[in-house]
Amino acid sequence: MNKSVQGFLKLITDALRDLAPIIIVIAFFQIVVLQQPFPNIGGILVGLACVVLGLALFVQGLEMGLFPIGEAMATAMTRKGSLFGLLSFAFLLGFGTTVAEPALIAVAAEAADIAGQSGALANTIEAKANYAFGLRMTVALSVGAALVLGVYRIVAGWPIQYFIIGGYILVVVITFFAPPEIIGIAYDSGGVTTSTITVPLVTALGVGLAATIKGRNPLLDGFGLIAFASLTPIIFVLIFGMVA
């Protein structure tokens, strides 16, 4: 019991250390640069206490729940030898976690607004809703496809850099043909697809796979799934902007 209390205290101090930079930056700009008083200091302190406690709990839960289950899935699938099962799991994980992602819903709605204003699209609510929905599906499908490709890469042991460099070249080429108003959104969409819960799970899945499959190195082969999931949306959204 004493040990777990000690462990949790360590998590709390880690969380405090992680938050210290934000507190320092905000305080410095508020007091020195903007020379404003802090509004509602009590509320801020309560909020900060929540942030610290929340971060400590999250890290604890990571080690207990998300990491083990991700690795256990990888091990179990490899033992079963079902590549199809593994790839369909990867696809569903990518698609399922992205399609309902609040950040993506917000970005898709803004993109539809831009398309409506620029005249690329009829400026009606219905046309915009269709456009936003299509964009969301495109991104979700692209993340699903990315994880399938990424998992297959781990199984096959292909080096990652050729895929990523190839992806970059593709992005650059398509940029020249895509409508200018979609480019900013497309580039940003790579960053919004991977949520805080998906990342640990996907990372554990990749590392678990690389650790179970003979001849794979967890560091060389296990990482890289997130990279795929952040690159493909850029390509797909650019193409969507050209087609739609």
């Binding site: 934000i22 942030v51 406690l53 999250f58 890290v59 729940g65």
Partner: peptide, 26 residues
């Protein structure tokens, strides 16, 4: 594992609420 999931849920919720209360507005 299930307890871990509950921790992740509680932790993230507290984290986000705290950010919304303390940091995002400012």
């Amino acid at each position: 594992v299930l307890i871990g999931f509950v921790y992740v849920l509680m932790g993230l919720s507290l984290f986000l609420v705290g950010l919304q209360e303390a940091l995002f507005p400012i």
